[in-house]
Amino acid sequence: MAKGDHIYIQKGLITHHGIDCGDGTVIHHRGKPAGGRITKTSYSEFAEGKQVYVKPCSYKFSADEIVRRAERRLHEQNYNLFSNNCEHFAMRCTTGQSNSQQVDNSVTARHAGVAAAGGLLLVETTVPAAGLLGAVGFTTTAMLPPVAIAVGAALAAGAVFVAFKKLSELDDKRH
């Protein structure tokens, strides 16, 4: 890791992002339960004992400028899970773009499930065979209406989205 790197840790189903200041500190945007504030903490406090990764992206600014951009936003309290979270903050500092792949992925998954409902009348899919045969790994094909598949996909995507939000809130309470 180096000064100006966009770094992140894995926290269950979500990731938490920040900017490495190159001096053993990290500037990151904490969630609402922690005051929704952009703060500067030690690298080890940011890492919480977890592996820290560098997010690969096209950096638009120099390392010094990235850190300056992060420092200018210290103490802001405008956290919003969907439009101004820790990943939005780190991307804005490094690229000038306010993006969150986590938010984009959860919204895309929800829309994909709903869009699938407009497909064919029946869709062929593989499912476990009934009874003992299914228990030992045999499968069969079944014809299901796409709305059943779409509803299942939308519910699964919605569950992931809700879990992402809840984990974020629970995790931020620890700070």
Results as ranks from 00 to 15, higher is better:
58 S>P: 04
113 G>I: 12
100 S>P: 03
63 A>G: 02
149 I>F: 03
90 A>S: 12
5 D>E: 11
97 Q>S: 13
75 H>S: 13
175 H>G: 09
161 F>L: 13
107 V>N: 04
30 R>F: 13
139 T>Y: 12
16 H>M: 00
107 V>F: 06
149 I>M: 07
92 R>L: 14
67 V>L: 00
32 K>N: 12
137 G>A: 06
24 G>D: 07
19 I>K: 03
95 T>Q: 01
61 F>P: 00
103 V>D: 03
39 T>A: 14
49 G>R: 01
109 A>R: 09
48 E>K: 09
118 G>V: 14
51 Q>S: 10
34 A>Q: 03
94 T>E: 08
156 A>N: 09
134 G>T: 05
81 L>S: 07
118 G>K: 15
8 Y>T: 04
22 G>P: 02
27 I>C: 02
134 G>K: 10
103 V>M: 06
157 A>W: 07
138 F>D: 06
24 G>Q: 01
44 S>A: 13
172 D>R: 01
9 I>C: 05
26 V>S: 03
91 M>Y: 10
126 T>G: 02
159 A>W: 07
14 I>F: 05
109 A>C: 07
43 Y>Q: 10
100 S>M: 05
111 H>W: 15
32 K>S: 13
6 H>A: 06
155 L>M: 11
146 P>Y: 08
131 G>M: 06
118 G>Y: 15
114 V>A: 14
36 G>F: 03
173 K>S: 15
75 H>C: 11
163 A>Y: 09
167 L>T: 10
103 V>L: 08
108 T>L: 15
13 L>E: 11
92 R>I: 10
162 V>T: 11
128 P>E: 11
174 R>L: 14
74 L>D: 10
1 M>A: 15
152 G>S: 07
49 G>P: 04
9 I>P: 00
66 I>N: 01
133 L>K: 09
127 V>Y: 14
46 F>S: 02
9 I>Q: 04
1 M>Q: 11
126 T>N: 10
146 P>V: 15
107 V>P: 01
33 P>D: 05
149 I>C: 02
61 F>L: 02
99 N>D: 13
138 F>W: 08
109 A>W: 03
86 C>P: 01
140 T>I: 08
20 D>W: 04
24 G>C: 00
151 V>C: 07
97 Q>G: 11
173 K>P: 04
167 L>D: 06
89 F>W: 04
56 P>R: 12
90 A>K: 03
80 N>G: 12
68 R>H: 12
27 I>R: 00
46 F>R: 01
145 P>H: 08
120 L>V: 15
16 H>A: 03
18 G>K: 01
59 Y>Q: 03
104 D>Q: 14
109 A>E: 03
88 H>S: 04
135 A>T: 08
20 D>E: 06
63 A>W: 01
130 A>G: 14
87 E>F: 01
157 A>V: 04
116 A>I: 13
103 V>Q: 05
149 I>R: 01
101 Q>I: 12
37 R>Q: 10
13 L>T: 09
83 S>M: 13
73 R>S: 07
18 G>C: 00
95 T>K: 07
57 C>R: 08
88 H>W: 10
148 A>I: 14
92 R>D: 14
153 A>M: 14
